[in-house]
Amino acid sequence: MQPESAMTPGLEVTVLVSIGRHPLTGRARRADQDARGVELARSLADAQVRLLHAGERDESSEAALRGYLGMGFTELSLLEQPEGADVLPALAEALDATSPHLVITGERAERGEGSGLLPYLLAERLGWPLVSGLAAVESVEDGVATLLQALPRGQRRRLKVRLPVIVTVDDAAPAPRQSAYGPARRGAFEATAGPVSVDDEWAAWHVQPARQRPKRLKIVKAASARDRFKAAAAKAEGGGGQVLTDVTPTQGAEAIFTLLREEDVLR
């Protein structure tokens, strides 16, 4: 779909932004990971960055979305969707129509379903590659992006991916810049009505705040400071896990079921 020789100048980037939720007060805000995605996009040289949000528009969501405008944008594209709608078809259609080179989004939303599946479903639908957990975009040359993927424990993996591509960022990406009040309130919403597909299942769900699960205590038996340091610095080890290979789906499911029972996730 994209010409092979997509050069750096005029690199078109779309950042998918959602409405966040403050973990303590539940107030609407710019979502942290999405804001990091915007910051990543802003750090790309010669990129034309477009912000895209699909969802409903009301007072609190508008205030949250203006948080992204305050990062130095004059407008934000808004696909108006009613509450509870599945935004996937609308987003896919909009991306298909504008055909950006790079789509950046957070790993998962801070409210709503928050399953983290949207980028994957979107990539599947558009037939684009997806790279998760990005720390940086190092360069974009000749239609190929060199990406730095964040792995656990500070490790990084360098990947070369042909554009267009969907990338997701998590907390390893650079912290977002401050949102400035002036540009935020002057910014405009460019609202378009996308196709609406009502998510019947979601409508039937009952949503309640998650109960905080007790944390498993990490008991360190150490006699010396050196042992304590080693224990603190040690890699997280599964220990009690088991590796199942060549089992039938039923056996696998049973093993998972047993584990969930043991862990008191299922009762």
Binding site: G70, G72, R177, Q178, S179, A180, Y181, G182, P183
Partner: peptide
Amino acid sequence: LTLEEGAT
């Protein structure tokens, strides 16, 4: 600086 530049 704060309200327009976001540069606190």
